[in-house]
């Protein structure tokens, strides 16, 4: 039983991060219908910037309290990622808004390759140790252990997601975002500044990505120039699983994917009699995705869109 609880906890931690990143994908997709392949790279840049700031602050021996160092680093990462996402959208996506559907996908891929290699030049190709400023002493809950970092991850993600839902539901900006997602042309006619809303969407998504990057790097105490790619893919899978374009769906999909992965990795070996090892955890995640989509082609919470005439 405690093993099960442990896997569930791990799954929740993993899933919270997926959900944060998935929100960025799903918001952009909801409005532009674009798979923003560069989003995973924004997560990575967030982690890397935070790492640099923390090393600088800790190295300068100013004697700041660790939590303040982390907060400053995260704030810097958020600012850098917001600026980055803003420029990515302006440079690579906006000129192609009326282009054939796959053109922005290719620029997104190009952006992803560009950012990854840029990061490799700046921060090197080796794994970088992420300073652990939050103590990693494990607490025991009913036989399972959880570290402070993991508690922070769950709490922070939950708070951010709640904040985002409130933002989208109750503010003027949120209403404009929903209107734009529904129908950009009509929203434009109603006086919504479409370009500003799209920029805002990218920037908000990037802020979440930066936080996710810091959290994930803090959890594993490691940052790497390629860490964003697979994380981004998983998060996008989560967004699709939940029903892409749907905020609650992205959160649910993220948590579900995290749980499936960690429980799957924990039990797949026992269930298959040792034939499949934990290497197959990704297979497991993708198989669930395929199964869900076979029965619900627009994801768990996606609306059943009528066949377009």
């Amino acid at each position: 039983m405690d093993i099960f609880l442990q896997q569930v906890l791990n799954g929740l931690v993993l899933g919270s991060v997926y959900a944060l990143v998935a929100l960025g994908y799903t918001m952009v997709y909801g409005i532009l219908g674009l798979i923003n392949f560069a989003h995973g790279e924004v997560v990575m840049i967030g982690a890397m910037v935070a790492l640099t700031v923390m090393n600088a602050l800790l190295g300068a021996a100013v004697g700041l309290p660790p939590s303040l160092v982390l907060a400053l680093a995260t704030a810097t990462a958020i600012a850098v990622c917001m600026a980055l996402a803003f420029s990515i959208e302006r440079v690579a996506y906006r000129p192609l808004r009326r282009a054939p559907r796959l053109a922005p996908l290719i620029t997104a891929i190009g952006m992803s390759i560009l950012l990854q290699n840029l990061a490799m030049m700046i921060w090197g190709r080796q794994y970088r140790t992420f300073p652990s400023v939050i103590p990693v002493t494990p607490h025991s809950i009913g036989g399972a252990s959880i570290t402070d970092v993991q508690i922070v991850i769950i709490v922070v993600s939950a708070a951010i997601m709640a904040g985002l839902l409130l933002l989208v539901q109750y503010t003027r900006l949120g209403r404009a975002m929903r209107a734009t997602a529904e129908n950009p042309t009509v929203a434009g006619l109603m006086g919504v500044n479409i370009n500003r809303i799209i920029s805002a969407t990218f920037v908000i998504g990037a802020a979440l990505a930066a936080v996710a990057g810091v959290l994930v790097a803090a959890n594993y105490s490691i940052a790497h120039y390629s860490m964003g790619f697979m994380l981004g893919l998983k998060a996008f899978t989560a967004a699709v699983l939940g029903g892409i374009g749907n905020l609650a769906g992205a959160m649910l999909g993220g948590l579900l994917l995290g749980l499936i992965e960690s429980i799957g990795a924990g039990y797949i070996s026992d269930v298959s009699g040792g034939f499949f090892g934990s290497h197959y955890q990704d297979v497991f995640a993708f198989l669930v995705l395929v199964l869900v989509l076979v029965f619900r082609p627009t994801g768990i919470m996606g609306e059943r869109v009528a066949e377009r005439a």
Binding site: L96, P104, I109, G110, I113, L115, N117
Partner: peptide, 17 residues
């Protein structure tokens, strides 16, 4: 190696734009 991939990414973006 990274320069070449960077230029490659850049080329993809430019051609599509």
């Amino acid at each position: 190696e990274s320069l070449r991939m960077m230029l490659f990414g850049l080329a993809l973006i430019l051609v599509m734009l």
